[in-house]
């Protein structure tokens, strides 16, 4: 049996042949498509390193059977920067030293993008910390992460106000 999975990844339509339905979205992205920015930290929904946006919502790619999101739009860390300019969340992570080893960072950033889009945390540090608690960071860059998310949220809100 061969299956064909169709995804739009970072704006690009992809058809991925699969031998069987077992691969997760994470393993399709990393091992079939070659987008290795998304990381595997636990493969069981316990760390958040594999966070991507599926139709605009943050999800753990490791617990998403790829076939179950057939037809979806996926945004990964590779699709965030536009025309070579860092996304405000990416820039805020650099400025606030919101990472050390960098392994959890793509997941943190995609989670932060999702959190800001949800629009419920605002700039409340406690809500940001809670909202980012599904992303483990063993280097424990948490203070920087919380600051970066608050900064980026503010920057994105300002941009929105200006363009409105």
């Amino acid at each position: 049996m061969t299956l064909t999975l169709t995804l739009t990844v970072n704006g690009e339509r992809r058809e991925v042949p699969l031998d069987d339905a077992r691969p997760t979205l994470l393993d399709v992205l990393r091992e079939r498509i070659g987008l290795t920015g998304t990381k595997k930290g636990c493969d069981r929904g316990q760390c958040g390193a594999c966070t991507v946006l599926v139709d605009g919502r943050r999800m753990n790619a490791c617990l998403t059977l790829a076939m179950s999101v057939d037809g979806a739009e996926i945004t990964t860390i590779e699709g965030l920067a536009e025309n070579g300019a860092l996304h405000p969340v990416q820039a805020a992570f650099v400025e606030n030293d919101a990472f050390q080893c960098g392994f959890c960072t793509p997941g943190q950033i995609m989670s932060a993008v999702g959190l800001i889009a949800e629009g419920e945390a605002g700039d409340d540090p406690e809500r940001i910390r809670e909202g980012m608690s599904g992303n483990l960071c063993r280097c424990a860059a948490y203070p920087g992460i919380a600051k970066a998310v608050a900064d980026a949220q503010k920057r994105l809100a300002d941009n929105e106000r200006k363009s409105a």
Binding site: T51, M59, N60, G134
Partner: peptide, 9 residues
């Protein structure tokens, strides 16, 4: 419960 990512799924 769980995390925002898991609650989305």
């Amino acid at each position: 419960g769980a995390s925002a990512q898991l609650r989305n799924a």
